[in-house]
Design a protein around this nucleic acid. Structure first.
Lengths: 273, 273
DNA sequence: TATGCCCTTTAACCTATGTTGTAGCCCCAC
DNA sequence: GTGGGGCTACAACATAGGTTAAAGGGCATA
């Protein structure tokens, strides 16, 4: 609760880091972000941060720990939509949407910052660069969900599983949570099954195949990827969708007014299939 | 090309309508939107508006017609991520992302407006309310993709198909493209299959079951839904995720400075599972 | 009127994945 | 330590959905 520091030395948080890959943050922007995160709350594992169907509450920023975003059918079948990692925002659109169409549940103990949804509006009004960076990071999240859709629709169980492992590896390594090819996966096989649209038994079979082929090792929650390249090739993994190549400078330039002609006569393209 | 009208009488476009459900647009915002859409281009059916892997080009606004957003694996397997309908934006994040992780292909002849990506940055700087409305409509699109993920992961072929038909019915009726329960579906069974993660043969079987049970009728591209309630119940359709209940007034209020206390002492919640 | 292409339809067969059931392990509570 | 709950593991069997193949309809072009 007292961890947020005074304005003169803003703390570097995961959100801060994430937005930095889109923008070179100005001092007042850093101050604003650190102010947003000043109300810090801890929650234990297996707690709902948001429940499908309820009215939206505060906006939350994940600072530490893992959670899942998931949706359920009335009869209990469940789909994990995405993993929520440090720096991710929960319920950013609370101001506008009536009620939540998904739940968010912690997998580990977590530390989140809470603030009222009105502050997002404030942010759009007063910090357009931050607003753009947030909107962009939201778009990146959508890209991840779309890629998972491709997995569920068109990849086999083995491919899907390999793909997810590589995805998590890549996402976690951008926040320095991977060391020597191994990382902590605080996830039961049931959750993996729900993320990949498989049964728990089949996820078990599939992990076994991956272990037998020597591509990965599993010890409790520790997963070791022995051969990323080959695992990526099994999963037909193409990291384009993670949009890891970011261009803070390009956005900087755009924001500093170096704008091209606003003429309406852009070239016309579009080619036949 | 000459259809965009002069500033004094801005044309009501689908984008305009869509944003109006989030905001009560001011005159200068209407003018700006109409200026954005002044460069209008037509394309025939089966043309790519964007190709996976290529550098992003212009931002486009769909004004008329249908398209699909889809992703493909190297071996040709393909997944349709979403249907692009009038008012939707294509490539909104061109400024930041290096290259496209999906393709967009027209299904019918379309009319789109094109503008350079820099204008999105301009919009964030000068029209924060429009920026917020756009960001929110992007979030709604993500919600649709997440719901489709639930379908592919956890619904049976019959449920998925019923669900998609009801979804399209609801989305199209908000833009007055449904009449008496029937609408035009400019889509081959192959595309349906790619949207639902099924084989073309199985989509055919499934449509047959829906027709045999009397829930729908198909004549060419005309689909008639005879019993929406029952179809919705087959598909376990809950329209929460479409976020059709919008609250322009709530957003208006937030933007006009009627903001609550910014104190940091929001209630702490979170309940055990 | 004929030709061909694209799309739909159906049948027969196949396989990836789901289901059910049982067992063992580990860890925590008592 | 003992019991129980949650998780992993794996075998045996069931089935939804995939694959292959072939025929037929509609529509444009010649």
């Amino acid at each position: 609760m007292t961890r947020a520091s005074a304005r003169n030395v803003p703390e570097v948080t995961p959100l801060w880091l994430k937005l930095s890959s889109y923008l070179i943050l100005k001092d007042e922007e850093k101050d604003y972000l650190s102010d947003l995160e000043k109300n810090i709350v801890r929650q234990t594992a297996r707690t709902d941060l948001l429940q499908q169907g309820e009215k939206y509450r505060d906006v939350r920023v994940m600072r530490e720990g893992w959670a899942i975003r998931h949706k359920a059918l009335p009869d209990g079948r469940r789909q994990v939509v995405n993993f929520v990692l440090p720096g991710d925002i929960i319920g950013m659109y609370s101001t506008l949407f009536e009620s939540a169409d998904h739940s968010v549940t912690t997998l580990t103990a977590v530390e989140v910052a809470c603030f009222p949804p009105e502050r997002i509006v404030e942010l759009f009004q007063s910090f357009p660069r931050l607003a753009a960076a947030l909107a962009w990071s939201g778009a990146r999240e959508e890209a991840i969900v779309a890629e998972r859709l491709l997995s569920l629709g068109r990849r086999t169980a083995l491919e899907r599983t390999a793909h997810l492992i590589v995805e998590l590896l890549r996402r976690l390594s951008t926040v320095n949570l991977v060391e020597n090819g191994h990382f902590t996966l605080p996830v039961t096989q049931e959750i993996l099954a729900d993320a990949l649209g498989l049964s728990i038994v089949h996820i078990n079979r599939t992990l076994r195949r991956l272990r037998d082929s020597g591509l990965i090792e599993l010890n409790g929650q520790r997963i070791t990827v022995n051969d990323v390249r080959q695992l990526a090739s099994v999963g037909q993994f193409d990291e384009l969708y993670l949009h890891l190549i970011r261009a803070p400078k390009r956005l900087e330039r755009a924001f500093s007014g170096d704008r091209r002609a606003r003429s309406g006569d852009d070239k016309v393209e579009g080619r036949k299939m």
